[in-house]
Design a protein around this nucleic acid. Structure first.
Lengths: 343, 343
DNA sequence: TTGAAAGCGCTAACAT
DNA sequence: ATGTTAGCGCTTTCAA
């Protein structure tokens, strides 16, 4: 591969001149410029990004760490991040941590060594050491969707999960449901902890008892165990829920699967409500009522915050720390319905 | 951030010594080694991967280009690629081309400039210029799942789509179906072209007529148009299929959605069969019979081929070009059933 | 066993 | 308007 020096020799000029036309920073004579560009074309010259980055201290690359690409809700964030990044001339490196702290740490180390300009992270439950270190080094980073406590001091873009869950339960309550079951994800994650709190608060406000027998905790998307748990729950002689609020659409789909398997009609026997609004939600049977998160927008905004940090760092300017909570929205579909008669 | 020189000064040795202990290539005195490692620890030294790569000409990074992460079947490949890569000490850069040639070209350029060691590509229909150029430069690369014609000379890992489609149709035929509809993806892709050919060949062998009225071409996963087309197809007075073979599970899910919407029972009225075996297939209602592709294994094998190329290039050794077609397998579930009576 | 120094390819300050 | 040169942080040959 041709390098700058090759091009310079080819046209009989110095490397700095060639560099100048390529970066068009300083002024160069139009005719010189033409000659150089022709040579660049001719030799098929491509700049070496490694050398350039080493010199200027920036890579124009950001890393996006996500827990699991299989999770459809994340793909929408990825799109938001990629689109926003591309628009700003940044390349996105996508990394799948598989919900594993070691893998996460490894990616963070490797990418920091490679000088990515910043990180957008959707992480594991606890604030890991690698993330803490990153933060302490002042490395640009933003947390997306999943977050730590508000005191972490890390820029965050997410939704108000407490309120979203509260509104979901309220919605089911107003439909006439009084036995509202809950399918919760890993409560080690603040996301689920907050949704749980919102659920409890709603029950309290509507004078509904908190019934542990219609609550499934630590459900894993798509797992056999989850299906089993749901079957157990709906086959209880007493305490069978008349509605189930699943804290992700994928969990809701498993719930529906379990209900079908046990001859329960949705929504006639039991209403089901999800969370996220993944594209699949409007395709399953029956279509799924859900609490929509503006995932694409979350991705975009995350990048904007990150860029703001990167710029601030580069210019020694100011960046205002913030936690942004975007609005959620109920999408009504077929899996929920008004309950007229009382059981 | 501390660099090699800092460490060297800290312990009063030369950078080369420090470098040596860090790479443990050459022999260094055990006591020296200990001192250096302590200093490294103390200063929190992290090597600069950019500088290192610039020097040695390798980045230990490979790029994985996929058309669309939303496509669930791809996530399994991603996993296969990542796992295999990690095992070999390589980092994977995941890029989403969004089925867009320009984005694909841009990623290829950016990553080549950044000296990734090789590419695993699941690409767009036509062989793009950027890929051709990559190939001509002798850049290590392998095509995965999607492929060009066998003459392209590029290593490929996929399945025998012709045969897989043939077997799927045969399966439906043996179940007693005689009006087997087809939902095909973009026929610009060899994958679908081959599946179409397999379908036709099977019809011919079983003396079934090729009926364009029960074939939907260029279906887009999850699109409204697809649902509409399926509705049209099954509401035809004559020519209503008694089975539908969808060339991806996602398409099959749309098909099921359309059938539900039109009051058709699955599999009582119409059997539905998919392709891929994404995790969701066993969760939808009814669960989906499908032609399974060994996606995880395809991902793993792709990396192995790529590494073989990278090694060959580094050592001027031999790499044997190959096209690997992994076996597919029918997974029987609830969406298909034996048709006893004739219509 | 360790050190000095060249050089990977580029940018930018300084010089002309 | 263009050339010279130092240096980003590392590896590696050559010398000692």
């Amino acid at each position: 591969m041709a390098n700058l020096k090759d091009v310079a020799e080819y046209v009989g000029m110095s490397v700095s001149t060639v560099s100048r036309v390529l970066n068009d920073k300083a002024y160069v004579d139009p005719s010189t410029r033409r000659i150089v560009l022709a040579a660049v074309e001719e030799l098929g010259y491509r700049p070496n990004a490694l050398a350039r980055s080493l010199k200027i201290g920036r890579t124009y690359t950001i890393a996006l760490l996500i827990p699991d690409i299989q999770n459809l809700y994340l793909t929408m964030i990825v799109r938001g991040v990629e689109d926003a990044a591309r628009q700003e001339g940044l390349t996105v490196i996508l990394c799948n941590t598989d919900e594993n702290t070691d893998i996460e740490a490894e990616y963070i180390n490797v990418l920091r060594d490679r000088w990515v300009d910043g990180f957008v992270i959707s992480s594991i439950s606890k604030k890991s050491d690698s993330i803490r270190r990153l933060k302490n080094e002042g490395y640009p980073m933003v947390l997306t969707v999943r977050y730590y406590d508000y005191l972490s001091g890390i820029d965050t873009v997410a939704v108000d999960n407490f309120n979203a869950a509260y509104q979901a339960v309220k919605y089911l309550y107003e439909l006439g449901h009084r036995q509202i079951g809950l399918v919760l994800g890993d409560i080690g994650l603040n996301v689920y902890k907050d949704r749980f709190a919102g659920y409890r608060e709603a029950l309290r406000d509507f004078d509904l008892p908190l019934n542990e027998r219609i609550i499934i905790k630590n459900a894993v998307d798509g797992s056999e165990a989850l299906i089993h748990d749901v079957e157990m729950m709906v086959n209880q002689p007493t305490d069978c829920p008349d509605a189930i609020f699943a804290t992700s659409d994928l969990k809701a789909i498993s719930v529906m699967h379990a209900l079908h398997k046990n001859g329960k009609q949705i929504p006639e026997d039991i209403s089901v409500m999800g969370f996220d609004d993944i594209p699949l939600s409007s395709l399953v049977h029956p279509t799924l009522t859900t609490m929509k998160q503006p995932l694409y927008e979350i991705g975009q905004l995350s990048v904007q915050k990150l860029i703001s940090q990167i710029e601030a760092k580069a210019t020694n300017g100011q960046h205002i720390h913030s936690i942004e909570l975007l609005p959620t929205e109920i999408i009504s579909r077929q899996s929920t319905r008004r309950r007229s008669e009382r059981l």
